[in-house]
């Protein structure tokens, strides 16, 4: 009975590795670059390249590959389900068909494309996990705010949007904790939440949702009061407690990553691997 363990994604882990030290603004931009790059890959060799790159980053960030992998466990059934549906309902050039029954067609190409998509999703999961494992929530949101701050000029409420994001993120562990408490309280009075078939379990879980929502609303109310009593009034004119400057490390890591990807891209192109 421990939910916490399975909600690894998005948890910062203290450390002073190279990756921890890169400025979060640079890291966000790199994360976006890498994700875009991953979505452009069209060959297995591309996947292998990115995979190697990720292993290097994992090494540099002092994280453990297996630990991040474990975080996938709770969503594994969903991933597999999507994979199966993709294979069954693949519509595209048919190519070689392995098996056909009514409207269900399983083709070699279908399997290939679907596995590919899944691998890409996993790569994206990995790179984002590394990002959140090495970036404190506070500095992440701070960086986000700075990156979209210029938009304030065109009346885009950057500060408020980031604030909402921060609070939402901040409350995930709190809600998980609350849910764990509720489940324990129900189990202690004879509810068997962990048994029964899928339907029975869903019905039982719905008994948790209502009290969970109520407590979330109560917390939201408390938070509003706490913020107002400390005179919070939005972003305009707020200054930062710690002003960060970019360092050599930030520039080098940025340049290194961009170079690495351009080179990979070019090599693959050149050898017609992509």
């Amino acid at each position: 009975m421990e939910l916490y363990k399975n909600t690894i994604f998005g948890f910062y882990r203290e450390g002073d590795s190279l990756i921890h030290k890169i400025d979060p603004r640079i890291k966000i931009i790199l994360l976006i670059v890498i994700i875009i790059f991953i979505s452009f890959i069209r060959t297995f060799s591309g996947i292998v390249f990115i995979g190697l790159f990720l292993l290097l980053i994992i090494k540099l960030s002092n994280s453990s590959f297996f630990y991040i992998l474990k975080g996938l466990k709770p969503v594994l059934p969903i991933i597999l389900l999507i994979l199966i549906f993709q294979i069954i309902f693949y519509i595209g050039e048919p190519g070689k068909i392995l098996f056909q029954w009514n409207f269900i067609k399983i083709s070699v190409l279908g399997i290939k494309v679907s596995c590919f998509m899944m691998l890409k999703a996993i790569l994206i999961y990995f790179i984002s996990s590394i990002f959140f494992l090495t970036t404190e929530m506070i500095s992440f949101t701070d960086a986000m705010e700075r990156l979209i701050l210029p938009l304030q000029k065109i009346k885009f409420p950057s500060h408020e949007i980031v604030m909402v994001g921060v609070i939402a993120f901040r409350f995930v562990p709190t809600l998980v904790e609350e849910l764990e408490r509720l489940m324990k309280a129900q189990i202690a009075r004879g509810a068997d939440l962990d048994r029964g078939n899928l339907i029975v379990r869903t019905i039982k879980l719905s008994g948790l949702l209502i009290p969970l929502f109520i407590s979330a609303y109560q917390r939201a109310e408390d938070l509003v009061l706490a913020m107002e009593s400390r005179c919070y009034r939005g972003g305009e004119g707020r200054t930062r407690r710690i002003a960060k400057k970019l360092t050599i490390l930030d520039f080098t890591s940025f340049i290194f990553t961009v170079l690495f990807f351009s080179l990979t891209f070019l090599t693959i192109r050149y050898f017609r691997l992509l």
Partner: peptide, 27 residues
Amino acid sequence: RRKVAMLFQHPDSQLFKETVADDIAFG
């Protein structure tokens, strides 16, 4: 769990139904 009754540290999360009677009836 019937034999061993537990009052948790946070009574708020121990009560999860709308009314007193509903809550006691849960167990």
